[in-house]
Amino acid sequence: MSTSILHITNGDSTTNYLKKLHFSGDFITWREMLCEGQTITDVGSETFWKSRFNFFKTSYKVSKKKFIDYTLKEYRNLCNKKEASEIVLWFEHDLFCQINMLAVISWLKRYRKGYHISLVCSGKVQKSKDLLGLSQLNPEQINNHFKNRIVLNEDDIEYADYIWQLYCSESPLRLETVNQFNPMSPFKYLAAAIEAHLQRFPSIKNGLNNVENTILTTVQKNKLTSKDQLVNQLLRDQKNLGFGDLQYENKIDSLQNLFSSFNPVKLSKNGKQVLENQINFYGQLRNDISYLGGSKKYSFLYNDESKKLLQITS
């Protein structure tokens, strides 16, 4: 093996920041958002990438060329990087990053068995009330995170792979006790991310999930003059999702029947009644093509009181 380090980062902003700070080694940028759309366990397989392209094409109108240029070419670069003294993973605390992290570790378990793998994960930082992303850290903080990176042992890698298998399964029910499986694991933000994931199943109260209810609540609490303002407000307010503007725009579009106007932004009568749990919108939203991991989104309901999922049997 060579003496170089291979950095696998959560996005272009992190990659560019590390290069700007003159971190040595090779860089691979993991350009996916596996927290959305159907996922299967065999990361990197032909079936896996076909499924992911179908999702991006259907939900985000991504062309095959863009998918190949943006995601697949970088993945192929990763496949070709077979020699490194250490593989360093750079991921953040939020749902978006934690799910991607699990997938990468699952891939490494299969294709880079025995390699020295370590993790840099940002979130809690001294003297900051907010959880911070990697690009929000100053150079000293970034270097301290790197210096104190966590070496993942075989049990850690097995655990991450196990949670990935559960995330990709047809039922999310076993994920409810994820933080009890290995409370001493180095993945200290994973339990909160999985909790946020479970809350993305429709609420038993009104048929909207936590993200969708947050969108309606944000409209009610703020005087917003455009959809862009709404998206920006959602981005500022989010705590542990890590969503980008395209994701929020996609979700707003799926709820457009609950809006009477986007200039200014106002809820319709139905939108207000749904938000107040006077109307259950589950029937209008339900479909068989929406997935969260390996589970059909509308085959489960989230009980906000018990914080448990209920499986719908047909």
Rank of each mutant, 00 (worst) to 15 (best):
S51Q: 08
T39M: 10
T39K: 06
F27R: 05
V43H: 02
D26T: 01
W30F: 05
E46S: 15
F27W: 12
G44L: 01
Q38D: 08
C35Q: 04
K50M: 15
I40Q: 03
K20A: 09
E32G: 04
L18Y: 12
K20I: 11
L34F: 10
Q38C: 07
F53P: 15
D26A: 13
R31G: 01
E36H: 04
G25M: 06
M33A: 06
S45V: 11
T39Q: 11
G37A: 15
T41Q: 11
K50A: 14
E46D: 15
W30C: 01
Y17T: 09
S45G: 13
M33G: 01
T47P: 13
K20M: 15
S24R: 13
F48W: 14
S51I: 03
W49D: 14
T39P: 04
F48D: 12
F23D: 05
L21Y: 03
M33H: 12
R52T: 08
E46L: 12
I40L: 05
T47G: 15
R31Q: 05
K19H: 00
I28R: 06
G25Y: 11
S45Y: 14
K19L: 04
G25E: 13
Y17P: 05
G37C: 14
S51E: 10
T39D: 07
S51M: 10
E32Y: 09
T47A: 12
G25C: 02
F27N: 03
T47K: 15
W49A: 10
L21V: 01
D42I: 01
L18P: 01
G25F: 13
S51N: 10
G44C: 05
F53M: 13
K50L: 13
K19P: 02
H22A: 09
K50P: 10
N16H: 12
L21W: 04
S24M: 08
T39H: 01
W30D: 02
E46G: 11
R52Y: 11
G25V: 02
W30K: 05
V43D: 00
F27H: 04
M33L: 00
C35A: 01
L34C: 06
E46K: 15
T41A: 14
W49E: 13
N16P: 13
K19F: 00
R52W: 15
F23L: 04
I28Y: 02
Y17C: 09
C35V: 04
S45E: 09
S51Y: 12
D26W: 11
R31D: 06
T39W: 12
F53W: 14
S24D: 11
G25N: 13
S51G: 08
G44H: 07
F27G: 04
G44T: 11
E36D: 10
G37E: 14
E46M: 12
I40V: 09
G25L: 09
F23R: 13
K20F: 06
R52M: 10
H22L: 04
E32T: 06
